[in-house]
Design a protein around this nucleic acid. Structure first.
Length: 492
RNA sequence: GGCGCCAUACCCAAGUGGUUAAGGGAGAGGUUUGCAAAACCUCCAUUCCCCGGUUCGAGUCCGGGUGGCGCCUCCA
């Protein structure tokens, strides 16, 4: 059982020691995709952050139940389907499949449950009936509205005072108060609809999450997550509905990730016409480079997207992978204490940092999930490994000295989902994704390298250098090491 | 107008009032190398947007500016 950690809570606007309702068990609900379009880099930030966060909780010894929904009934879906002359359900199914593909490509661990609105309709209707029965909601002409002013603490999450909220109410809606929002919308001709006590219709946007969270995690959940843009109205309304319906706290923590912004300062979004889709990103770059890009930044900070972002992250990841490879190639089984005195200060330093890593790593991640600080430690360790590796005897006898460093780096896969592949797989993925953009392929590079090796064997340095120049132009770094030649894709 | 967030080097970026302000990328010089690459070493913020204040001590706390951003019923 791990120690409690500190986590920022949007409800209190403070970093607080995290305590789940049931000791050792954590229930997390995360708002997933509204499936009317492809997942973009902004969505990916949220999904990767919560994926890493859940991995971290589990690796720390918590038992976690993680639920992420699909919103597959929604006005935007209907609108998009009508534009395309497509059946809304078919369109939603198509984008559910697209998201599943993107999630797999990003290396997201599957949630414990992925409920959909269409399969949660009974729970949704039951919850609305309950709210109507309690006087928190009322039906008008087949619509059901939530009476915002009956929710005692409305505004608690977003810090909005009820009376300060503006309204854009449609005067013909039948709402008693402009702030009231829809729990159930009556079907217009051609809309997808489900039967209900108020006639055929579909759920409003917020009630689904309240119903699904209660179904899969109980009336009080530990952490509710999502993008900062969901705080109001979505999460505020979820709180109101759930707390009125259940008479219990809805979620003890709200965890919101900062948004991705574009260079012009504008938010990334399809409506802005500036979205980078995950299908394109994952085709172009190794998934872990994308993950590292997001985890280098604190999850709550706004993050400006720049074209070089992923390339830089790839260079960083490459550095960690290479350092781990260098360390893992070392052999020897001497006594560490003896080796440290023989091998000098650099050995002592990599030993020290390796042994100190775990505590510092946990301290960083326990401090409001500070992945950037935790990764900084890994880079410090990588440099110490490389510095030690420069010693003539390190490769032959250094294994015991770098053993703590390897144990330290082995924390990255379970805790953050980084460094999950071995160096061969990594380089192959990199080559397969990056080389086509440069108009070449791994096979073509192999052939050029083979030619160069032949030239070198014949001591034809001019030809060898000409081939190096050619490879260099393709962004290939060729390394002659220990009597044989290897190559890798240069990323910056 | 209401609610809130942010400002650290050429770029990205961490930073719990207290030793030399993490880490990465780019750049310059060096070691190494047939030449390279990678790696390592050195250099790259006497200073944290500005002005006040609290304090023995402020990047960190408070107040006021300036600039940027988010939400205020489409949003991850």
């Amino acid at each position: 059982m791990a120690a409690p950690f500190r986590l920022y809570n949007t409800l209190t606007r403070r970093v607080e020691p995290f305590e789940p309702v049931k000791p050792g068990h954590v229930g997390i609900y995360c708002c997933g995709m509204t499936v009317y379009d492809d997942c973009h880099a902004g969505h990916a930030r949220a999904f990767i952050i919560f994926d890493a966060f859940v991995r971290r909780l589990r690796a720390r010894g918590w038992s976690v139940r993680f639920v992420r929904n699909y919103t597959d009934v929604d006005d935007k879906i209907i609108h998009r389907a009508n534009e395309r002359g497509e059946d809304p359900a078919a369109l939603a199914d198509r984008y559910v499949a697209a998201f599943a593909r993107d999630a797999a490509a990003l290396g997201l661990a599957p949630p414990d449950a992925e409920p959909r609105v269409t399969t949660s309709m009974d729970d949704i209707v039951a919850m609305i009936e309950r709210l109507v029965g309690q006087g928190h909601a009322y039906a008008v002409d087949g619509n059901v509205w939530f009476a915002v002013r009956t929710a005692p603490r409305y505004g608690q999450l977003s810090g909005q005072a009820v009376d300060a909220l503006g309204s854009s109410a449609d005067p013909d809606s039948g709402k008693r108060d402009p702030l009231d929002f829809a729990l159930w919308k009556s079907a217009r001709a051609g809309d997808p609809s489900w039967p209900s006590p108020w006639g055929p219709g579909r759920p409003g946007w917020h009630i689904e999450c309240s119903a699904m969270a209660a179904r899969h995690l109980g009336e009080t959940i530990d952490i509710h997550g999502g993008g900062l843009d969901l705080v109001f109205p979505h999460h505020e309304n979820e709180v109101a509905q759930s707390e009125c319906a259940h008479g219990a706290r809805f979620s003890n923590w709200f965890m919101h990730n900062g948004l991705l912004t574009m260079p012009g300062g504008r938010k990334m979004g399809k409506s802005e016409g500036n979205a980078f889709t995950v299908v394109d990103l994952t085709a172009a770059w190794p998934a872990e480079a994308i993950r590292l890009y997001y985890l280098q930044n604190h999850y709550r900070s706004p993050l400006a997207w720049t074209p070089d972002s992923i390339a830089e992250s790839l260079a960083m990841l490459d550095r960690l992978v290479e350092a781990r490879e260098v360390a893992s190639r070392m052999t020897g089984d001497g006594e560490a204490a003896r080796l440290l005195t023989d091998l000098g200060a650099d050995a002592a330093e990599v030993w020290r940092l390796g042994n100190a890593f775990e505590a510092a790593f946990h301290a960083a991640l326990d401090d409001d999930f500070n992945t950037a600080a935790a990764l900084g430690l890994a880079f410090e360790l990588a440099r110490a490994v490389n510095r030690f590796a420069n010693h003539k005897r390190a490769a032959a006898v250094g294994a015991p000295v770098v053993a703590p460093a390897l144990r330290a780096l082995a924390l990255l896969p379970p805790h953050l989902g980084l460094l999950q592949t071995d160096v061969g797989t990594w380089q192959a993925e990199l080559a397969a994704k990056v080389l086509p953009r440069r108009g070449t392929s791994a096979n073509a590079v192999d052939a050029l390298v083979a030619d160069r090796t032949a030239a070198r064997n014949g001591r034809d340095w001019a030809r060898a250098d000409a081939l190096r120049t050619e490879l260099d132009a393709l962004g290939i770094a060729v390394m002659d090491r220990d009597g044989h030649t290897t190559w890798r894709v240069r990323v910056t």
